[in-house]
Simulated assay, not measured.
Amino acid sequence: MFLIAAYLYPPATSAACFIFSPTDCTLLNQPPAPKIPTRELTDDETISQVVIKEILKTPPVESNNRKIAFLFLTPGQLPFEPLWAKFFQGHEGRFSVYVHASKEKPVHTSHYFMGRDIHSESVVSPKIAAIKMQVSWGKISMVDAERRLLAKALLDSDNQQFVLLSESCIPLQNFDYVYNYLMLTNVSFIDSFVDLGPHGSGRYSEHMMPEVEKDDFRKGSQVNPF
């Protein structure tokens, strides 16, 4: 029985290798074959991989005043701004607010939101006039807006957690609960699920291959509820 087990499960160490199968030890000692990419990477993808590796090697920034960055992605006004103001009240110094309005500049009623607007990049029209880039739902422009919000928040090294919100989001717990919950966790919360309908799997395109297989395609929310 022992010999059968040794045959079914080949030795994984050099010592066991020489005991059971000396002739096959050369294969065990050989370095692993290099991973062959499914396709040749573009210059931008190669540069991105190098940058990501350098970022991962960078030690985390130590902060004596850890804050949560609340990133509001909205087309215009924030209808629940008064509610958020009550949520933030009394917790100054423990949070940051950033607002990206894509269609119209919101008129803020709370001092927590005043001066916290992030402006979209401008493009030059054929008439040489700067116009604001429009952010459309489900388009890459929305991803660009989210990246712009995150980039602004990352300029403050005290921001340790980041919450992406829309104009329709409201807090369901008090500030202390949210703060302690996020600061004590070491995972990210992403809404991702299988949707077999036209607005889920129906949006899959063969052009996503080979990076994204159809079985791996998911629908996700672009805001983080809590």
Rank of each mutant, 00 (worst) to 15 (best):
E92L: 12
Q77L: 14
W84I: 03
P82W: 13
A101E: 02
Y112K: 06
F95Q: 06
E104R: 15
F87E: 02
F88C: 07
E92F: 09
F113N: 02
Q89W: 13
H91E: 06
L73Y: 09
P75S: 08
S96F: 00
L83A: 13
P106G: 05
Y98A: 03
S110K: 13
H111N: 12
Y112Q: 07
K86R: 15
F113V: 04
Q89C: 08
H111T: 13
V97E: 00
Y112F: 15
K86T: 10
S96E: 14
F95E: 03
S96M: 09
V99I: 09
E104Y: 10
E104A: 12
T109R: 14
E81K: 13
P106L: 07
V97I: 10
F80N: 13
F88P: 03
G76E: 01
A85V: 01
E92D: 15
Q77W: 07
Q77R: 15
V97Q: 02
R94I: 00
L78W: 08
L83R: 15
G90S: 06
F87G: 01
H91A: 06
H91F: 12
T109M: 14
V97W: 01
K105M: 10
G90A: 06
V97K: 02
G93H: 05
R94F: 04
G93R: 05
S96Q: 15
W84K: 11
P106H: 07
W84E: 03
K103C: 00
F87S: 05
K105G: 00
A85E: 10
L73E: 07
P82Q: 06
V97L: 02
